[in-house]
Simulated assay, not measured.
Amino acid sequence: MTDLTLSEFLSYGPQREAGKEGKKLLRKTKEGNILKWDVEKDDPLCTLEEAFVNVKPSIGFNVELKFDDHIVYQQDHLVHVLQAVLKIVFEYAKDRPIIFSTFQPDAAILVRKLQSTYPVFFLTNGGCEIYEDVRRNSLEEALKLCLENDLQGIVSEIKGVFRNPGVVSKIKESSLCLLTYGKLNNVPEAVYMQHLMGIDGVIVDLVKEITEAVANMIKPVSNNAVGGEEGLAEIEGMGKLQVKSNPKFSQEEMSFLFKLIPQLLQI
């Protein structure tokens, strides 16, 4: 994908011209299997500029800067790619909420140096997989990278957080924002557990379903349970769920929730 030109990229999938068929979209699993690209509704691929123009301005974007895990990039190449992205963002984002995120440590450092308008988050799987670049292999390394390079936060695979819950307080004490992603974030109990741990937000596939399920676990503070300033939960831009109330729990309830973590890690 990173070797495609723009015209080649746009030639895949559904096409805008009536009657014209694009090249088939396939995806490769971590195990190496090739699968059909399956979505609920097909739509032609678009550029970042078109996304800014056509999506309503109140919707925030998490601009994930993707690079090949197996390539060692030279700094001049990273700068060239990042400047091309930043040019579009500065021209078309206007007042839209934006964050940048990337698994590539050098790209995270550079995009922070190239601009100070938008927050930069370092993506990590929290040690669930091991890479040659040690900066990618733990939440402690992610924290170190953020502090040394003035990044604003971390986005971690939730399993990495559940396996190392003690690091959450270290991240929060460092005034960094902590978000999570992963299949477990489609389990309401896992999201609820993160609320108790003080995690700032979750990236989920089933935004509406998870929002409602978590809201039902906490007694409402108003009739507007989802979406309003006084409600329990608010769906923010970029599919982030933020639970707003601060419930009180008995020792038995807390014990049950912490016992739930090992079961969640088996999912």
Rank of each mutant, 00 (worst) to 15 (best):
Y131N: 05
P57N: 11
P188A: 01
L178S: 04
Q74C: 12
F103L: 09
I158D: 01
I235L: 12
Q266I: 07
A225D: 10
V243Q: 03
D150H: 14
N149R: 08
S222C: 11
P262D: 00
V221L: 10
L45W: 08
V226M: 08
E148Q: 15
R135L: 10
I267E: 02
I235F: 03
C146K: 06
E173Q: 14
Y118H: 14
K41L: 15
D68Q: 13
G237K: 11
K159D: 06
L179S: 05
A93F: 04
D42S: 13
K248W: 03
L139N: 14
F162L: 05
G22N: 07
A213L: 01
H195Q: 05
Q251V: 04
T5R: 11
T2Y: 14
I99Q: 12
S11H: 11
E64W: 06
G13C: 10
E132A: 09
D76N: 15
E50N: 08
W37L: 02
S101Q: 13
V111G: 02
H195W: 00
L110M: 12
R27N: 05
N137R: 02
P247A: 12
N149K: 08
A108V: 04
F162T: 02
T124P: 13
R136H: 09
Y118Q: 04
I267Y: 02
I210T: 05
M217A: 01
Q251P: 13
A107Q: 05
V89G: 00
K28V: 15
L110F: 02
V214R: 00
K170R: 15
F61K: 07
K56C: 10
E40V: 13
I235K: 15
T124A: 09
E157H: 11
